[in-house]
Design a protein around this nucleic acid. Structure first.
Lengths: 246, 246
DNA sequence: TGCTAGAAAAGGTCTGATAATTGGGATTGA
DNA sequence: TCAATCCCAATTATCAGACCTTTTCTAGCA
């Protein structure tokens, strides 16, 4: 065997044409060169500009569409409009992750326990008057819904989400929105609430709302933590198991 | 004007052929009919099975690929292999969200403050011996890295992520992974650490590690909270602003 | 003026062909 | 016999072009 020089060749990846185009467009959007609302050139124009075929251009646009970077309309004066990937995209990916990996309900509730006290604290700090009014409004509806289980559940979730929206913290809000739907599905499937539990929740909400109104951050966080911790312990049937002493 | 019957027609949306196919395949994967590792039929087989054209089939596969449901290889014995959308997909969508919406560093650090104490608590509860060893190992490297800023930063992040992995809570881990990279980028850009700060962080890590080793959940959570809260306050320059009294 | 039919513009779909990539099997040479 | 090499087949990637569907604009007509 003849001796050979040491290979300095590193694995070469050949990117796909459509990926290159998608990356370029994505980067332009991320960097702000393309503003949301802007209309991209038509597919046929992109073909002439990029030198690629229409299928490659379309592949790129489809990927960007599924990532939430463009929305596409058909028809005259249609085309691809630049959008920014919003919380809905994050929520969708989290939801698919949760469903495909069989994440259990207690993991999701643990997640809520981690997130919601901070959301309540931030809501107490940052809420606007309009947001406070919305939360208050939902709370009034909540108080009157203890008889109707379906309504109760819906208003309950809406109230928690309204607080999250008032926090002003987008990443945490996105996570909260993302885990809310899987939690609701799982709870619908396996959990029933008693009237006593419901009126208990109403009382908990009342004091949390007061703390948020008074902008008492520490109280809002502490009471929200108690509320969601209790919820978790009831739902996972682990009331006696080391109740997160603090 | 002749009187007409009330229209009961509701707006009709015509889904795209490729979306229908993508939805079908996605649902089969989510429901478990298609296991990860399974090889989908070739594009041409899918064409004959679905009755659609090759472009529609390819559109569907491209969307699924960008969602993390399949990975596609070219060449003989290539094709589309079923995968499950992992934390990387979640992290990617969060990262794009953060970058396109100009989420500020203090929001991300607030996020960490919300999440990491719970991760530390769960790590103290659920860590395996091997995971404890990994965390300990990283801590030793950390202690020796105070002189090398770049190394220090890398090991620091690795240590926090190792704790997150030991928690056993996949959603929180995904969020932690998702916000780590944007935080690092922003910190690289604007923040410098002093040797005093670094050795202070080493001491904080030491006590957290001890709590995790001893499986002292409350201590792990409390000390981690102090640690990341201090980090946030230093990084946002708001040391004196209502330091989350507790 | 108001309405309608058609033209125009855009994405959606289909068809067929060719290129590039990859793995495995056949071939060949020592 | 065995290892390196060459060739072929299967598969995705890309291209080219045509036609369809949807939507909007417009010109002409009543």
């Amino acid at each position: 065997m003849t001796s050979r020089v040491a290979s300095q060749i590193v694995p070469i990846v050949v990117p796909k044409a459509s990926d290159i185009l998608a990356n370029q467009l994505r980067q332009m959007i991320v960097q702000g060169d393309l503003r949301p609302g802007a209309l991209l050139p038509s597919e046929r124009d992109l073909v002439t500009e990029s030198g690629l075929s229409r299928s490659s251009v379309r592949d790129a646009l489809r990927v960007l569409e599924s990532e939430g970077f463009v929305t596409t309309k058909v028809g005259r004066s249609g085309g691809s409009i630049v959008t920014l990937p919003g919380r809905d995209i994050v929520a969708r990916s989290v939801e698919l992750f949760v469903r495909t990996h069989g994440i259990r309900l207690d993991s999701l509730l643990e997640c809520r326990v981690a997130v919601e006290p901070t959301l309540a604290r931030l809501a107490a700090r940052n809420r606007s008057e309009a947001e406070l009014e919305e939360i208050t409004d939902l709370h009034k509806q909540f108080e009157m819904s203890v008889g109707d289980v379906q309504l109760y559940k819906r208003i309950n979730l809406e109230w928690h989400l309204a607080i999250a929206r008032s926090s002003g913290n987008e990443p945490l809000l996105a996570l909260m929105e993302a885990i809310t739907m899987p939690i609701r599905d799982a709870m619908d499937y396996q959990h029933v609430t008693t009237p006593e539990m419901r009126s208990h929740a109403v009382r908990a909400h009342t004091v949390i709302l007061k703390a948020i109104r008074d902008q008492d951050e520490a109280s809002a966080a502490r009471r929200m933590e108690r509320h969601v911790t209790a919820y978790r312990d009831v739902a996972t049937g682990s009331v006696g198991r080391e109740p997160t002493r603090r």
